[in-house]
């Protein structure tokens, strides 16, 4: 089972052009800020919205081909959907919710219910058959929604922010559980999220969407290590600069020069973690060849550390200890030198 989609869709401010491929059994995480077109992508794949142009193929079956006049109705697509607020039918029992898909496909009530009961068992929800959706916790509701979608054996499963409705305390456990359930599902899965951790944990591959375009994709570790846009860099907590390398140095658009540990040529991304940045009152002596005079723009608590935002020819984020903040007398508007060892910097083609 595999998905191959080439989507073009324009509505209001959104201009979506996305090509997506999901390998059989794979989970692709679609990561992006609000308004990037993530949910629209899912609605296009589910057939709820019509494509302007492009093509959707699932297991070799063409679901959408506007040029050829093909648009398979949502109910005939075998595409399951679980949304942020789960949308369990509120007037139906949990069992009826799960059995809904089978009964809609003409299965007799008893057989549909028996199978639904089995699914509830698999989801660890024995004894919840007669509950109403309103009586479930967020995690339970999610499992019911998952069972309701999976029972009809969809070839493609779409999850729209499946963990966003949960409180922070229960999220890790439900996330781990969801990952387990997805591992046991043979079809393709697309998970939409704006949470990088969720994308990294759930996805075999991460596709980053910004402004209706795919700006980066790859294995989670690859995306986390080598961000290609400011948005991704901020999400994974790295400083990201873009410049032109020639040998062991790279020049930034501002004219500042960054010393590199390895040779590189042409347009490059330069990434380094905020903890690798050292702040000092004067130009540092010693091994750090990258030292820039900056002006502090902002100080903010960041876990045990303080995240310092500094502007200048090379804008950086630096994580320093509260003690360092006190020792250096850091405050917004103050001058400071930031230095980074070349060995802490990772460089990759832009």
């Amino acid at each position: 089972m595999s998905l191959s989609a080439d989507l073009a869709f324009r509505r209001g401010d959104l201009d979506l052009r996305v090509a997506l491929d999901v390998a059989p059994g794979a989970v692709v995480a679609l990561l992006g800020p609000n308004g990037a077109g993530k949910s629209t992508t899912l609605e296009l794949l589910a057939g709820i919205l019509p494509l302007d142009d492009g093509r959707v193929e699932l297991d070799g079956v063409t679901l959408d081909d506007p040029a050829g006049g093909v648009h398979v109705r949502p109910r005939d697509r075998r595409v399951g959907m679980v949304v942020q607020d789960y949308l369990l039918f509120p007037k139906m029992s949990v069992l009826e919710n799960v059995a809904f898909g089978l009964r809609s496909r003409g299965l007799p009530r008893d057989r549909a219910r028996a199978e639904a009961r089995e699914w509830l068992g698999r989801m660890g929800l024995d004894g919840y058959e007669r509950r109403r959706p309103g009586e479930l916790s967020g995690g339970q509701a999610q499992r019911v929604a998952l069972a309701r979608a999976l029972i009809v054996e969809p070839r493609l499963l779409l999850l729209d922010e499946p963990l966003a409705a949960l409180d922070a305390g229960t999220r890790p456990a439900v996330r781990a559980e969801l990952r387990r359930h997805l591992a046991g599902y043979a079809g393709c899965t697309l998970v939409v999220t704006h949470d990088p951790l969720e994308a990294m944990v759930l996805g075999d591959r991460v596709v980053v969407l910004e402004g209706g375009r795919v700006v980066q994709q790859g294995a989670p570790a690859e995306v986390a290590r080598r961000p290609r846009t400011d948005y991704v860099a901020r999400l994974v907590g790295l400083n990201l600069l873009t410049g032109t390398a020639s040998g062991r140095t790279a020049e930034l658009p501002s004219g500042a020069v960054v010393a590199l540990a390895h040779e590189a040529r042409g347009p490059v991304h330069i990434a380094f973690p905020p903890v690798a940045v050292t702040l000092s009152p004067r130009r540092p002596e010693g091994s750090a060849r990258n030292a820039w005079p900056l002006v502090i723009a902002d100080l903010e608590a960041h876990g045990d550390l303080v995240r310092v935002t500094a502007d200048g020819a090379v804008p950086v984020l630096a994580d320093v200890t509260p003690l360092a903040v006190a020792d250096l007398g850091l405050e917004p508007g103050g001058q400071v030198w930031a230095s980074v060892k070349a060995t802490e910097i990772s460089v990759y083609p832009a």
Binding site: A46, R73, R75, G80, V83, L87, F100, G101, V152
Partner: peptide, 17 residues
Amino acid sequence: DRRYDDVAATLGATPWT
């Protein structure tokens, strides 16, 4: 909420169902 109708459709329900 009309999204319930969308969910029902993805589950294979006809508009009448």
